[in-house]
Design a protein around this nucleic acid. Structure first.
Lengths: 237, 237
DNA sequence: CTATGCGCGATCGTATACCACCTGATGGAT
DNA sequence: ATCCATCAGGTGGTATACGATCGCGCATAG
């Protein structure tokens, strides 16, 4: 039970329940990018009718987790290498905004939580655990934001890129465990220190560094990761 | 007719048709922020059942145009002053990315279109016309992008802020028609010149200036515009 | 052997009817 | 005057049915 920064409450509403379950499966990698999602099948499995399933799919489309094509079904969102690259460029530019909005209002307890997660992360060896902790770490720094709009955009990007980050981590774990892993930890430490001291601009710089280096790392390895990039300029019907 | 980066055609699909109509009403201001949307009513009016209407509402929720609360109905998205401010800060940071991605690939015809729209805009006095031309102008500069993800985010922000921009323009038209209006035109000219010369960084700078100044202008007048801002830090169930 | 077109099945989209539940408002009791 | 209970409107969900559309395999032509 990780403290997922997303997870909406509302248990009684079937569509929300379906959406949560589906989102979990996508974010956990159980449903990989490109996987087809059949409405009947899912409705049957979750003991509900197709309407909540359809509603859930629309909700997930809103979050960028699935893509729906009329009469052709829903599939888990796929990103091209370029999309992934762009996602990081966007993060680099807007997450500092979210951070600056939150940091001044973080409490002592928030900082304690942050430190705890950071330290647990430094000892983590399991990919799933590391991903969850990484996510939690950053979202604690964003915890006291007052800009849901911005947070939603950021979260959406985290969600849509999650599967690809996982693929990378699994790949990287084999041969860079000590090198890249350590750098990652150092960056977290830098970010934590700046956040704890409420040095907003330093924290922003640390965050940008962190995101940019991760992007570069990911780009370096993206050759082996799948994806038939369509180098098309805009779309035309 | 703005160059919508997605806008699926598909006329046969009722839900898409409903979504398009609803989006039009919201963007035109016919349905102002906060307006309630009743499913039965809309279904009846458009001679369809509630299912396509629900689907359409979910689609519009995905675009950030409406907000759906379980059992409490759908309403046109409302932004607080803070949301509006943040929207502009986001635009300031990510639209230059989109611009840089597109400008190098703009054709001579694109530039001709751009110039045409700019000149028509300089003579426009009608608020609706000016808004449409403003939108078209910028989207022509983005026309040759290859990053639908980024374009989608940008378009979403344009959509959700449209009603508020309209309110401002209507307000400003009365007493700043010559002052602010001229500045606006000059900025467009600066952007156009840089784009035409394919000076990407200059164009980006001009764009940032344009967005930032618009934001400042809007903030200055936002006092009179509605909105009961909830100064709450994050949400808590 | 490859390419083109056809047709059928699997799914999706939509319609209808009905019940269950939530929300907001109305009105009465303290 | 404030608070709580009740009630209608409206949405969420279920069940069922049927037309429309897309993918894919198969037959046929080159």
């Amino acid at each position: 039970m990780t403290t997922d920064p997303y997870s909406s409450s509302l248990q009684g509403v079937a569509s929300q329940r379906v959406a949560d379950i589906l989102a979990g499966r996508i974010l956990s990698g159980e449903l990989p990018p490109g996987a087809r999602i059949k409405q009947d099948e899912l409705a049957d499995e979750l003991a509900t009718s197709r309407i909540p399933v359809r509603d859930a799919l629309r909700m997930l489309e809103a979050r960028g987790l699935v893509v729906i094509r009329a009469n052709a079904g829903a599939r888990v969102m796929t990103l091209t290498r370029r999309d992934l690259e762009v996602s990081y460029e966007i993060r680099e530019r807007i997450e500092p905004l979210l951070l600056a909005d939150s940091v001044p209002h973080l409490t002592g307890e928030d900082l304690a939580d942050l430190r705890k997660v950071m330290e647990r992360n430094q000892g983590a060896t399991d990919v799933e655990e590391a991903m969850a902790l990484e996510r939690e770490f950053h979202w604690i720094t964003y915890r006291r934001h007052s800009t849901p709009l911005l947070a939603q955009i950021v979260e959406r990007i985290w969600d849509t890129t999650q599967s690809y980050r996982r693929d990378y981590r699994k790949l990287a774990m084999g041969h860079t465990m000590t090198g890249a892993g350590r750098t990652h930890d150092v960056e977290h430490q830098l970010l934590y220190d700046a956040v704890a001291k409420k040095e907003v601009e330093t924290a922003q710089a640390a965050l940008v560094l962190h995101i940019r280096r991760t992007r570069a790392e990911l780009a370096r390895h993206s050759g082996v990761l799948a994806n038939p990039g369509s180098g098309a300029r805009n779309e035309a019907g």
